[in-house]
Nucleic acid binder design. Structure first.
Length: 422
RNA sequence: GUGGCUGUAGCUCAAUGGCAGAGCACUGCACUGUGGAUGCAGUUGUUGUGGGUUCAAGUCCCAUCAGCCACCCCA
């Protein structure tokens, strides 16, 4: 195979028109759902100082998984790996001027230096949506309804897609009851997170390795088996009611093993799963204080993020992605020969001035070639303006799908084309 | 960071260690004013890259790069 002189960067994707249409379709669904709930679009910079992320995680994670570089002034800059710190900064900077509850959403690119595999790339897009400034179960429920409304709008049904919900506060209390001390909490949350990902023996060994007593391990295991546990949480009970009232209860499943890795979640946490494939589609939760680290005043909120890669994989697996439409809304204005070229050019220009998308063949070529091109581009209508038509002051309009062709007076062309495109 | 699989024409893929092929696509013609079908003809290669074994390597061995998949991780 002939090697391209320059290879694309590992983990990036080339969006050829067909694939780009899929992305645009996804964006349109996201936009529609977000705005249906009264959320405003916003965007932050793609570059941030590395310290913005280091402040929060401080981990090796930032250094290992961030795409970072030193700029000419010696500053360490990172391509953003997530949006939350940026959002926190943007909100803290204008906290007094913003109107709360604040409802913002965003869709844009992010970068993480990971090993690419199915459903994961190094450059990806993410839908981020947050509701800030309120501390209520109703806010959490709204966020879950947004997830469900999105799944519904793309054709993912409750048969295959579930939003699994749990509550950090609830779990915290339960762990206290079985004698887990605060210093163990982080490890135990991690243990809970692994419950579904390991077999029983491996999970128990992991638990023992963490230094937990047998009684504690059994207590945790019992907790995770208790599918009614959520009923003892006021927040979860209220969320359940709200989701039911909105008609989305079929999507929701209260699941004790959902805990999320992020430290800043304090209340409700949730993940949406493709049940059949066992694939996580999005994740989010409730936090008490988004802007604390960046100098703002106490600000609670709830939000989630969804990557474009896995959702696209799942939608494709279920055959839910739209067919490629090409230029179906564009009219091909053919050029008969050099003597009629200006007439075709004028026609195309006139169509455009009336809001009709018109494509001219960029050189004089045989009609066969121009029709073939129109066909390849997926156009639905072609116009022919040859010597005969010009002599009669008419234009031939051909419907490329039905193969019907009519010759209409030039004055009626707009009306006819609009009818053919409809 | 660890492991597995795969790299052959534009695409999808064949080829027991023995002349590198097929289908699709593309170009032309049948069809000098009209696309999807059909027929005929034609074009298409540093077999990812670099070494090695062999009379002979797409095929076997080593290395390397890339892609996919699973782990790890997932802000």
């Amino acid at each position: 195979m002939q090697q391209s002189p320059v290879q694309s960067i590992k983990g990036t994707r080339d969006f050829y028109p067909e694939l780009f249409q899929t992305r645009e379709w996804l964006v349109s669904k996201i936009k529609k759902v977000s705005e249906a709930f009264g959320y405003q679009p916003y965007e932050g910079p793609y570059l941030e100082k590395l310290e913005l992320y280091a402040a929060k995680s401080g981990d090796e994670l930032v250094k290992e998984q961030a795409f970072c570089f030193e700029d000419r002034g010696g500053e360490f800059i990172s391509l953003r790996p997530e949006l939350t710190p940026t959002l926190a900064r943007m909100v803290a900077q204008k906290q007094r001027q913003l109107a709360f509850p604040l409802r913002w959403y965003q869709f844009g690119p992010f970068w993480r230096y990971e090993r690419p595999q199915r459903g994961r790339s190094r450059e990806f897009f993410q839908w981020n949506i947050d509701l800030l400034g309120v501390n209520s179960a109703a806010a959490d429920a709204e966020m879950i309804c947004i997830c469900a409304a999105f799944f519904e709008s793309v054709g993912l049904t409750p048969d295959t897609t579930k939003i699994q919900i749990n509550h950090r506060g609830l779990m915290d209390g339960e762990l206290n009851r079985i004698g887990i001390v605060p210093e163990q909490k982080k490890d135990v949350f991690r243990l809970i997170d692994r419950r579904g990902k390991m077999n029983e023996a491996a999970w128990c060994k992991y638990a023992v390795d963490l230094g937990l007593a047998t009684a504690q391990i059994e207590g945790i295991a019992d907790l995770l088996m208790n599918s009614d546990l959520w009923k003892s949480s006021d927040d979860l009970a209220r969320i359940n009611e709200a989701v039911k009232a909105a008609g989305y209860e079929a999507y929701v499943e209260f699941t004790p093993t959902i805990i999320r890795g992020l430290d800043y979640y304090t209340g409700t946490v949730f993940e949406a799963m493709d049940i059949r494939g066992g694939r996580a589609l999005l994740g989010g939760g409730h936090y008490d204080n988004l802007v604390g680290d960046v100098g703002g005043e106490q600000l609670p909120g709830v939000g989630f993020a969804m990557g474009d890669v896995m959702i696209s994989v799942v939608l494709e697996d279920y055959g839910l992605l739209p067919d490629y439409e090409g230029l179906s809304d564009t009219v091909m204005v053919t050029i008969f020969d050099e003597t009629t070229q200006t007439a075709s050019l004028a026609l195309a220009s006139m169509l455009r001035s009336q809001g009709i998308k018109a494509s001219l063949y960029p050189e004089t070529e045989k009609l066969v070639k121009q029709f073939k091109y129109a066909d390849r581009m997926g156009m639905a209508v072609a116009l022919v303006l040859g010597p005969d038509e010009i002599a009669n002051n008419t234009i031939a309009v051909k419907d490329l799908r039905s193969r019907n062709q009519v010759e209409v007076p030039a004055a009626k062309i707009i009306e006819t084309v609009n009818k053919f495109l409809a």
